[in-house]
Design a protein around this nucleic acid. Sequence first.
DNA 1: TTCCAGCCTGACGTTGCGTCAGGGTCAAGC
DNA 2: GCTTGACCCTGACGCAACGTCAGGCTGGAA
Lengths: 252, 252
Amino acid sequence: MDKALQVREFAGLAGVTVRALHHYDRLGLLRPRRTAAGYRLYGRRELERLEQIVALKFIGVPLKRIKSMLDRDSAALPGALKRQRTVLEEKRRLLDHAIEAIRNAEQAFAEGRQPDTAILKHIIEVIEMQNDQDWSAKYYSPEARAKIEERKKEWTPELQEQTTKAWLDLFRDVEAALGDDPGSERAQALGARWKQLVGGFTGGDPGVAAGLNKMYADRPNWPAHMKETMAPFSNPKVWEFMGRVLKCASIG
Amino acid sequence: MDKALQVREFAGLAGVTVRALHHYDRLGLLRPRRTAAGYRLYGRRELERLEQIVALKFIGVPLKRIKSMLDRDSAALPGALKRQRTVLEEKRRLLDHAIEAIRNAEQAFAEGRQPDTAILKHIIEVIEMQNDQDWSAKYYSPEARAKIEERKKEWTPELQEQTTKAWLDLFRDVEAALGDDPGSERAQALGARWKQLVGGFTGGDPGVAAGLNKMYADRPNWPAHMKETMAPFSNPKVWEFMGRVLKCASIG
DNA sequence: TTCCAGCCTGACGTTGCGTCAGGGTCAAGC
DNA sequence: GCTTGACCCTGACGCAACGTCAGGCTGGAA
């Protein structure tokens, strides 16, 4: 006869609450035997199972899935572990961003005399970057995403500013040259600048370039603030003109 | 007249759902004006406030607190930011542990032929370490906790094993010497070994040592698995004997 | 027998919305 | 003037994992 414990003792032994045991019982996750009076009795088998439950819960597996894992496809464990790890790593990424955002805001507060509400703008910035990235991810293949991730590490705010300015300049110059012959020297020079700026983002990777094209093609579905951000670059005449310029370049 | 938007447009603009706006409205967090028919109308002021809400939500502040922050003590923002950051950092610590635990389990799976359920033991190990640490934290002052954190970085599994063995050996030797005079050379040698092992954990820090004493004094309240872990070291005669030995040492 | 500790089963509360269900509103087309 | 169809409204339930009563048995001791 194995020692059988009542809920309270068992809960203490295993480091969970009595209520949790009740909960697991109702979910069918851990059903102890019962005395005639209905008291729950836990033994060694239950302890083992509970430990597995706690382990899976610790790594963030929801109770329902724990149940199906332990009851049915226990062979799927390694796959489940990996999936769960990627989930947690994603959560961690989010947490990192949030912490970074707070740091930004705190620093802004420590440095300057801004009204409290304005400080939150620093957090908003991070959120929007985050949103843009999550949202644009769907246009890229996994490999392309990996490339972008890699290149992002070498990305600095100054570089960002320079790039934005370069694009603005280019658009202004192209608008001034809309009447030119696409094959003209001036137009081709603009085309070269264009290609270089694109290359600065794609890093020459065709997969990244393909994603970028998909994203551009889908611009009617962009979220509002993305459209707003890209508003200075939305002139369709410029795009059309550059299309012809680049076609000339590839032919000639 | 500022442009007033209906829920759908406003939600799209701000990147939240219509339902969320309804929710914030009911909570009193963001109350737009209404048309005669009861339609919600959002303007620039509402957009600003919503951005602040989203920012605070992003860093994990619950809606109720957001409300009180924005309505009443908006001056408490920097403090709130700091608190929130520590909360998130704590969460991140937990997440890291969970990820580490999964890695352990995955490696065990990749290496050896263990049954699936046994692999979860590797996760359980991490959980228990985590629990022990969280629970023992209450005995230490913040400074002592910081010291321990620092020393933990130089802690390796091998060192852990060595230390455990050293303690086991010491207890065995002390048990064999219980009849000796506490002032005797043999007893004093045992006392020296004891002090050295304690010092190996405290690093000579009196704060850490104080916490350790508090923890030992509270041993009736230790959780079950802690008692189990410490069972080999629970012989009260050994502790009593060592008390006398160390008193002799400090006097003589 | 009585008492108290410990067990039981509901059932509601929490957090931030998602998701119907049932029913007005409004501009447009017939 | 009436019907659409697109939007809007207000409940109200659902989810995840228990916490926290409330009301009522059980079981061993005094």
